[in-house]
Computed example of a mutant assay.
Amino acid sequence: MTLVLFNKPYDVLSQFTDRGSPTTRATLSDFIDAPGVYPAGRLDRDSEGLLLLTDDGRLQARIADPKFKLPKTYWVQVEGVPDDAALAALRTGVSLNDGPTRPAEAERIDAPALWPRVPPIRQRASIPDTWIALTIREGRNRQVRRMTAAVGHPTLRLVRWRVGDWTLDGIASGTWTRA
C-alpha cells in the first residue's frame, strides 16, 4: 500500500490530467511521480495544502467518504475579525443553500508561518484579516469558503493542514512524501 502526502500549491488541479481546457493548467503530474496513486478526495484549485493520494481503494474511500467523518482541519485567512457569535455559529453548524452543515470546531489562531502564496492574496488597508482553524467532518463542494461567508467573513486564503492523523508538518509547498 502506498500513501502519498502532497502539499498542493495554489492554482494546481487535484487530478493528473487537464482535459477540456484551452490553456494548460498545472496538475498533480507536474509534481508527483508515484505511479498508481490517486487522490483520496479533492482540494479546489484555489485552495492549498494537504492532499492524500493512495493506491489502496479501501483507504481512499475511508479518507474521502463523508460517512466515515474523518476530521479535516483547515487554516483559513478570512476578511475581518470573527467575533464570538460568528465562531459559535460555525461550531453549531450554519445554513447553506444545500442544507445545514454539521457542527465544526472553530477558533481564532495566530497567523501561521506558511510559505508565500503565488499570487499573494489581496490586502486591503482598511479591512483587517484573521486566521481561524476550522475542523469539519464532511466535505461538500467549497464548504469551508461557504461557511465563512455565511458568518460574514469571506475566505481570503485556505490551507488544509490536517486530514485525520496526517498533517502537512515538514512538507514544503509543491513537495510530497510517503507516509
Rank of each mutant, 00 (worst) to 15 (best):
Ala64Lys: 13
Thr177Leu: 07
Arg142Phe: 09
Pro66Thr: 09
Trp166Tyr: 10
Tyr74Val: 06
Leu51Asn: 13
Leu70Lys: 14
Pro100Asn: 13
Val78Asp: 00
Gly36Leu: 11
Ala26Gln: 15
Asp33Gly: 09
Asp83Lys: 03
Pro35Gly: 02
Leu70Gly: 00
Val144Phe: 06
Thr148Arg: 03
Ile171Ala: 01
Pro100Glu: 13
Leu51Trp: 00
Val151His: 03
Asp46Ala: 12
Lys67Leu: 07
Glu138Arg: 11
Asn97Phe: 02
Ala64Trp: 10
Ala104His: 02
Pro82Lys: 05
Asp110Met: 06
Thr24Gln: 15
Ile127Met: 01
Gly80Pro: 15
Pro71His: 04
Arg142Met: 06
Gly174Ser: 08
Ala26Phe: 06
Ala125Tyr: 06
Arg178Gln: 14
Trp75His: 15
Glu48Arg: 11
Phe16Ser: 13
Gly99Val: 10
Ile32Glu: 02
Ala34Gln: 15
Val78Gln: 01
Arg142Trp: 08
Ala106Asn: 06
Asp169Glu: 15
Val76Lys: 07
Thr175Gln: 13
Leu96Arg: 05
Arg140Cys: 00
Thr130His: 09
Asn97Cys: 05
Gly57Tyr: 01
Arg58Val: 13
Ile32Asp: 00
Thr101Asn: 06
Asp110Gly: 15
Thr148Asn: 00
Trp166Asp: 14
Pro103Ile: 08
Val151Ile: 12
Lys69Gly: 13
Arg117Asn: 10
Pro154Asp: 02
Ile171Met: 06
Glu48Asn: 11
Arg117Phe: 12
Ala40Cys: 14
Arg140Gly: 04
Pro154Trp: 02
Gly93Asn: 11
Ala133Ile: 08
Ala133Tyr: 02
Leu156Thr: 07
Thr175His: 07
Asp165Glu: 15
Gln15Tyr: 00
Arg160Gln: 04
Gly80Glu: 02
Leu90Arg: 03
Asp56Ser: 07
Ser47Gln: 08
Asp44Pro: 06
Arg157Ala: 08
Ala26Arg: 15
Thr73His: 04
Gly36Asp: 09
Val76Ile: 12
Ala111Asp: 09
Arg19Phe: 11
Leu3Met: 10
Asp129Thr: 05
Thr73Cys: 12
Phe6Trp: 06
Gly20Glu: 00
Pro154Tyr: 00
Ala172Gln: 12
Arg157Lys: 02
Leu5His: 04
Pro116His: 11
Gly80Asn: 12
Leu90Gly: 03
Ala104Ile: 04
Ala150His: 12
Val81Glu: 10
Gly152Arg: 14
Leu3His: 04
Leu43Asn: 02
Pro100His: 13
Ala149Trp: 07
Pro120Trp: 04
Ile63Met: 08
Tyr74Ser: 02
Ala86Met: 01
Arg91Val: 07
Val4Gln: 03
Arg157Thr: 12
Thr54Tyr: 02
Leu168His: 10
Val159Ser: 07
Trp115Gln: 13
Arg102Phe: 10
Gly36Met: 09
Leu114Ser: 01
Pro100Tyr: 04
Leu70Val: 14
Ile132Ser: 02
Val76Glu: 10
Trp131Cys: 03
Thr167Leu: 01
Asp33Ser: 14
Asp56Gly: 08
Gly49Glu: 03
Val144Lys: 08
Arg58Tyr: 03
Ile63Cys: 07
Tyr38Gly: 09
